[in-house]
Design a protein around this nucleic acid. Structure first.
Lengths: 331, 331
DNA sequence: CTGAAAGCGCTAACAC
DNA sequence: GTGTTAGCGCTTTCAG
């Protein structure tokens, strides 16, 4: 089947290609019978407009680039789902890019995005530096970043204030006398952990204390579990342990169980990024419902606004909230 | 910053646009000093070739469409990772499409893929019907499907033989006298469950018996857990329970624990799609390591072969193998 | 309301 | 080696 073009349709319908163009773009000015004639020809030939050619002519690809970290948690998946759902509404296509650990990696991706002439880009990545974004802004590509509060002329952001989240939680803990709070490192999400530390620091400072419960996982340990197993034996005692991801919380839970530490009686456990696995653990792990899907959806919606000249973008910095879900691992 | 084109570079370097085109495409015939001159101009102007225009001229977008189900498990993420890694090697971009439950959904996506002139498409989806694929083949778009054994002129496939997997496992169980095998339904993956049932049927048939352990989750139950909780009370007894996903296995484990059924003593539990969560459960759940990453990687590699005229595609149907990982939930 | 023609940015013969 | 030119398929003034 020969690639059939707008010319073929024009000939078949005995009109000019301009007219065909008008009907596929839903122009109002076409007479009803010619529209029907053209429509028929389109159907008959199985014609599908070439988006590439349209892109060239319109200087607009109706495609946005999405950059996410390679490590794929359920969380990331949800962000993508939200993103895609609203992208569909606005007829945008998604070009997916993933970042690996590599150093120059991000630059390659940016180069790629520019070449492919994406109309805009949404970036969700823990490790993100301003320099790289500048590349994009230099080429005037509108950007929305998810997870980091950061914006200027061409970049907007959608995020959850983790520092505030953990700050509030810690304040409550301290008030209740649970002062020995531990935060477990997550090597894969350094920026996130940094925010959590900030919140904790602030909470302790306001009580005239300093936060010293950050537990680093030495590089030689493959998993939190392996390290914690050792760690606990050294009698390090805490009132509450905070982890970022569900798998870390489960590791803590397993270690506690094996070492005869009762959760929540001897130790309370809370996981920042809640998940269905938290609810499946026994005892069930308390966590914060982070609006993952919404992060994606709102980010995409914001981007569409930035992409449409006549839509006023009043706020380029959007903070989303969280909901604490107490379960059985906390009192 | 004005969109700068090949003409601008040509003018800056004082050569024709053909020459510029040659250097960006690494043509050998350009003299070294002119190449340098052009390169310099490119750098100076910050020129990035317009992939859209290239696509139009070459009738090739260097983009493949990837279709995955919206529900995102870790498993899907891994497939995508594998896919992307090899796509990067061959310089292909990925256009991501997700399928929701909706009926006409798939047709919209296909329409979209055709319009965007993707060079090829990789489809990973449990619910997949031949009809829809025909749309694509009609427009001669090479396809690789992941998960289903299926191929013809323009479609290749990469899959794991789940029927065989479960057949072998069941044979072993029956041999050991564990004949009361149960398989739990997974509404989200009907085709997968169908394969598993086939394997089970075959194993029982070969022993002159019939498999009757398929446990359907009635629609009114929101989760397997809720239903199983009831189910177990009715004294339904099995020797081994097989689930497809980790969360289902965990549900079974929780119910068993709560009902005083000892795993693996009273009941053995095995999960087809292994995951890190299986290893984090207590007792740890046995499972099959399915080569998720490889499914994606091999699929993409196969597609690149199909996309290159001079590469001989000897086998369009590639079966990948699995590895049984016995843990604590089986004896 | 419809057609003619220029142009979007780049590639690939074909000349020179 | 390098330049000229004709498309690739579509949109969009501008005429009529």
């Amino acid at each position: 089947m020969k690639r059939i073009t707008i010319y073929d349709v024009a000939k078949e319908a005995d009109v000019s290609l301009a007219t065909v163009s008008r009907v596929i773009n839903g122009s109002e000015v076409v007479r009803e019978d010619t529209r029907a004639k053209v429509q028929e020809a389109i159907e008959k030939l199985g014609y599908k407009p070439n988006a590439i050619a349209q892109g060239l002519a319109l200087q607009k690809t109706t495609t946005i680039a999405l950059v996410v970290p390679e490590a794929s948690y359920f969380y990331t998946g949800q962000i993508i789902n939200g993103l895609i759902d609203v992208a569909k509404i606005y007829k945008y296509n998604i070009m997916l890019h993933t970042t690996t650990e590599g150093i120059s990696e991000m630059n390659d991706i940016i180069e790629n995005i520019i070449k492919s002439r994406a109309d805009g880009v949404v970036i969700f990545n823990d490790k993100l530096n301003k320099e790289e974004l500048n590349q994009l802004t230099k080429y005037q590509v509108p950007i929305v970043v998810i997870g980091n509060k950061m914006s200027d002329e061409t970049v907007g952001s959608v995020y959850v204030d983790y520092a505030k989240l953990v700050y509030e939680y810690a304040m409550e803990c301290i008030r209740k006398g649970k002062q020995r709070i531990a935060l477990i490192e997550d090597r894969k999400n350094p920026a996130m952990i940094k925010q959590l530390k900030e919140g904790l620091n602030k909470a302790f400072q306001e009580h005239g204390k300093t936060f010293d419960g950050f537990i680093e996982i030495p590089k030689e340990y493959r998993s939190s579990y392996l390290f914690l197993k050792e760690y606990v034996k050294q009698q390090n005692h805490h009132d509450v342990v905070i982890t970022y991801r569900d798998s870390q919380a489960m590791a803590v839970m397993n270690v506690a169980k094996e070492e005869g530490i009762s959760i929540p009686n001897d130790l309370e456990l809370v996981c920042i990024l809640d998940s269905k696995y938290n609810a499946m653990a026994r005892p069930q792990i308390s966590g914060f419902k982070i609006p993952d899907y919404d992060l994606g959806a709102v980010a995409m919606r914001l981007l569409t606004k930035m992409l449409t000249d006549d839509e006023e973008v009043t706020d380029k910095e959007i903070e989303l909230s969280y909901i604490y879900t107490p379960r059985k691992s906390t009192k």
